[in-house]
């Protein structure tokens, strides 16, 4: 396991989406979460899901520059996992209660959201049809929040401007594929 001298160093590595850093966090803190979830009507599988979701939140906050560590990472992870698991338990309870009712309202709701989800569905298909290079570039920029300089290095572009132009081209390509993808 890769050793980090302090949590800040670990967080920096996580921000880079360094898999060794994720592994480190996983090994160090998963058992704590597993213990809590198993003790609270969950399974080990639930614990993995919740832990991974918390790691995603951690990464997204780090990537967006919104992460502020006021306590230890362990405490933060425990609090996030606990909240997520409590919400899930509450949701499960609600679902059980909802099963007792007619689902007439669901149909209306479904109609309202179907238009948006169809567009997203179409976009998902378009994205999968995009070349690997373009998909990777867009993901690195929009999700992993890498800078154009970092992307240029990662994807072997000559420079950041070149990567920027490439990103524009990829978006145009996605748009074209999207327009031509049947609904």
């Amino acid at each position: 396991m890769t050793a980090y001298t302090n949590e800040q160093e670990l967080l920096t590595a996580l921000r880079r989406s360094d898999s060794a850093a994720f592994r480190n966090v996983y090994i160090t803190h998963f058992n704590m979460v597993k213990y809590f979830i198993v003790k609270n009507n969950g399974t080990e599988e639930d614990a993995h899901d919740i832990f991974q979701e918390a790691m995603v939140v951690l990464f997204e906050q780090l990537a967006a520059g919104k992460f502020e560590l006021t306590s230890s990472l362990k405490t933060w992870l425990y609090a996030v996992c606990r909240n997520k698991w409590m919400k899930q338990l509450e949701k499960q309870k609600r679902n059980v209660r909802m099963n007792d009712f007619e689902h007439a309202d669901d149909v209306l709701l479904q109609e309202e959201i179907s238009d948006e989800s169809e567009k997203l569905q179409q976009l998902r298909k378009s994205l999968s049809r995009l070349g690997v290079g373009c998909r990777k570039l867009l993901l690195l920029f929009y999700y992993f929040k890498k800078t154009m300089e970092e992307i240029a290095v990662d994807l072997n572009y000559t420079n950041a401007d070149n990567a920027k132009s490439q990103k524009y081209k990829c978006l145009q390509k996605l748009k074209t594929v999207y327009s031509s993808t049947p609904e």
Binding site: S19, E53, L120, R124, L127, L139
Partner: peptide, 21 residues
């Protein structure tokens, strides 16, 4: 498009984390 890219990124990260786990 960005919203879908992010959703895609999230599922990729989760998959990576699942593999790590």
């Amino acid at each position: 498009a960005v919203s879908e890219i992010r959703m895609n990124g999230k599922s990729i990260l989760k998959k990576q984390l699942a593999e790590i786990g």
